[in-house]
Write a protein that binds this DNA or RNA. Structure first.
Lengths: 132, 132
DNA sequence: CTGGATCCGATTCGATACTG
DNA sequence: CAGTATCGAATCGGATCCAG
């Protein structure tokens, strides 16, 4: 058990944070919010994901209890993935975070533009100094 | 501008998510919540961070408008970092996420234990089948 | 003290080929 | 259809050295 939710004190928190950071986890969770999906459906919906990464990501989510995997003994095989209750709950703070970024989109990009302009200017000054 | 906060439709959202995923950003933000800090203070507090990564992470946060960097023209130089209003606001959904993990810590670890036991059992069965 | 530059090992991930 | 196995390219990050 961890003493607090400080990522520095709770490895699990930082693990889950880096989960969020990988390219596919969040996308897949969002897709699964629409209900159970087959492997190939997810692959089709999450544009650009490779078979390998889809498998690995789903496995990790399954291991953490976020996703339930159901195999139907048909031929060809049919495997369905769906969010567990835990997984659905997990998706809430993620949505909240996405919402925050969306709301503050303009401020972030304004800050970047200003920072980049400033850097550009400094490089320009350096040039002048060196030339002069 | 993005059409929604779906990471698939808004590159900025996925950028910020992968920020969370890197090893240091969240730790540094949490440290800065305690007020302005000097470079070496942060380095001392965030155990294990290299000079390089601290610099890079702070630069990225500064560029996004989360952190303000103030240089005092003393010798030796003194540089202070502090959260901006945007940065402080940014830390809220992060805290919320950390809180969620903390609250659901037990469920996550229970799921992992079960998953690992199951995998272990399957490997065991495979062995028996192969041997038998 | 702050932080830029470089080198290099480790990890990540996509592409490809193969299996039940 | 739903994976597993393997390989190579790219990226990441720590260690080290240097500078204002």
């Amino acid at each position: 058990m961890c003493s607090s939710f400080d990522p520095g004190k709770c490895p699990t928190v930082s693990e889950m944070l880096s989960r969020l950071g990988d390219k596919w986890t969040v996308l897949i969770i969002m897709v699964l919010r629409n209900g159970p999906q087959r492997f190939s459906d997810i692959k089709r919906t999450v544009v650009g994901v490779s078979q390998r990464m889809l498998t690995l990501t789903l496995r990790a989510l399954e291991r953490d209890g976020m996703v339930r995997r159901t195999v139907y003994a048909t031929v060809p095989p049919r495997v369905e993935y769906e969010l567990t209750e835990l997984g659905r709950s997990f998706s809430e703070p993620i949505q909240a975070f996405g919402g925050w970024v969306f709301e503050n989109y303009n401020q972030i990009h304004a800050a970047r533009a200003e920072f980049d302009a400033r850097s550009e200017a400094e490089r320009g000054n350096d040039k002048l100094i060196k030339i002069g």
